[in-house]
Amino acid sequence: MTYRAPIRGAGWRETLSSVFNRRYREVPAVQNVSFALAPGEVVGFIGPNGAGKTTTMKILSGLLHATSGQVQVLGYSPWQRRSAFLRRIAFIRGSQPVGGSQELTVLDTLQYQRLLYEVPLAEYRRNLDELTELLELEDLLQRQLRALSLGEKMRAGLALSLLYRPQVMFLDEPTLGLDVTGATTMRRFVAEYAEQTGATVLLTSHYMADVASLCPRLVLIDNGKVQYDGQLDELAAKLSPYKLVRLTAPNADEARLREAGELIEASNGTWVLRVPREDVARTTARLLTELDVADLAVEEAPLDVVIDKAYREGVG
């Protein structure tokens, strides 16, 4: 997918010249991006700003027409935007959770959605009851869309999109601007929806908590190219050859701890050691034997750190 962007130099001469002789530059947004999703998969699609995530999602949902290559979603070419295709997908953006008539109430909009997507009345009522409960919509139904807060709009947007039970969901930054409770509710809801309906979900998010809690598989994109496509834990293992051993041992000798691994945190008798993956079993056994340990946990490096490393240094 490339964009054609007009360019010109600075100053009068260049400006006048550009009136008669326009010059353009081809700007590649995504290149050679290739991946497939199996039905029912929940996949994290991540990358730094400008990597091409949203462009790819727009191509997959039919908003953009790819300048080259082939795209198939549910057997359709998305850019043709066939009615049968659009009835089976949902593209939910955290930046614009609900579009259309903002003067209408949430209930008015849901009813319009029912008629537009031809949801049978009994199914509509059942889905609405379920969505109202799961997304706590009761207080929102009578309110105008324009009067909703961002978190409320996100809940309303989810309800509008899921009313017709899409088989494929594209979620673009769904927790953008949500508070902790809102983000948790959203994640829980998406996980339940995917599990109950077998929907395929492709999620982009800058919040690694979204990815970690929802997506076993990760597609990492940068500079318009796929850098990694595989299991999340495998990426963590690849990029972070260390694990964190967190132990609570108030009487531990710091020097002995330093022998066991790299000490990266110490606070009120709680210590965090960075230990090579292959040494974790041996080290924990030694610590438990030699120290008076009240609590011990082995953790993966924080996903943010792993992903940051992937963005900066590549996956390799």
Binding site: K58, S61, G62, S83, A84, L86, F91, Q96
Partner: peptide
Amino acid sequence: GTISHDLLRPQ
């Protein structure tokens, strides 16, 4: 960019 909402509707 709000025409995207219309483009995603099955009509």
